[in-house]
C-alpha cells in the first residue's frame, strides 16, 4: 500500500431519500450519531443563503469558508447516514471510467462553457445557472429535476464536444491524462445517477472515499 494510492481521488455519490433529507433520520433510528441527526435540508439551505450573500461581494473569504464548512458537514452527515443504512451508494467515480478526475474537470468547466454558449433565451439562462451547481457536491431532491434538465441541455448541445475537449485539457496535473471521451462518459454516468435519484425522489451528496 503506498501513499499515492491512499490519496487517489475516489468519489462516492450517496443517495438520500427525500424524507430523511427533509426531516433527518427517523426517531429511534440506530447508528446515527447525535451530531448527524440534523436534516440535510437545513445545511443545504444554509449553503444557498451563503451563496446569495456572496452576490454583495463582501467578505468573500469568510463566506467561502462558511460554505466549505456547510458542504463538509453535509458530507459528514451523509456518510453517517450511509453507515446507518439510511443512504445508499448510487455510483462510484474512481481512477477507471467513469473517472473522478474527468467528472471534476468537466463540471468545473461546464459553468463557464454554459455561460458563454447558452445565453440568449431565458430557458438557457436558467440552465446556465443550474450548471453553476454541478460541481457543488450536493443536489437536494427538489433540485434534481432541474439539474437533469440542465445536463440534458448540455449533452445535446451541438457544440458539446468543445466542452469535453476543453475539460480534458483542464486536468490539474500532467500526470493525469484525460480524454474527451472520459469526460463524456463521466457526464453521462452522472446523468444516469440523477435520473435514478429523480425516479426515487432522492437527493445526492458526493463524498470522498
Amino acid at each position: 500500500m503506498c501513499g499515492a494510492t491512499r490519496t487517489e481521488l475516489r468519489i462516492h455519490s450517496l443517495l438520500v431519500p427525500r424524507e430523511v433529507w427533509m426531516n433527518g433520520p427517523p426517531q429511534g433510528a440506530a447508528g446515527v450519531p447525535p451530531a448527524s441527526r440534523t436534516p440535510l435540508n437545513i445545511t443545504a439551505l444554509d449553503a444557498s443563503a451563503i451563496e446569495l450573500r456572496t452576490l454583495s461581494r463582501v467578505n468573500l473569504r469568510q463566506e467561502h469558508r462558511r460554505y466549505r464548512l456547510c458542504v463538509q458537514r453535509m458530507q459528514g452527515i451523509a456518510r453517517d447516514l450511509e453507515r446507518a443504512g439510511l443512504a445508499s451508494c448510487g455510483a462510484t467515480f474512481g481512477p477507471e471510467a467513469p473517472s473522478a478526475w474527468a467528472l471534476l474537470a468537466t463540471f468545473g468547466t461546464t459553468w463557464r462553457w454554459a455561460a458563454r454558449k447558452l445565453t440568449v433565451p431565458a430557458l438557457d439562462r436558467a440552465v446556465a445557472f443550474r450548471c453553476r451547481h454541478l460541481a457543488s457536491g450536493f443536489c437536494a431532491p427538489d433540485e434534481v429535476g432541474a439539474t437533469i434538465e440542465a445536463l440534458r441541455c448540455v449533452v445535446t448541445h451541438p457544440k458539446v464536444d468543445g466542452l469535453y475537449r476543453r475539460a480534458s485539457r483542464d486536468a490539474p496535473s500532467n500526470e493525469i491524462a484525460l480524454a474527451p471521451e472520459d469526460c463524456r462518459q463521466a457526464v453521462l454516468a452522472r446523468l444516469d445517477l440523477l435520473e435514478g435519484a429523480a425516479d426515487e425522489g432522492q437527493g445526492v451528496v458526493d463524498v470522498f472515499l
Binding site: Y67, R68, V71, F107, G108, W111, R132, A135, S136, G137
Partner: peptide, 9 residues
Amino acid sequence: PWLETMSYL
C-alpha cells in the same frame, strides 16, 4: 470554491 467545490474540498 464556488464553481469547483468538490475539487477545492
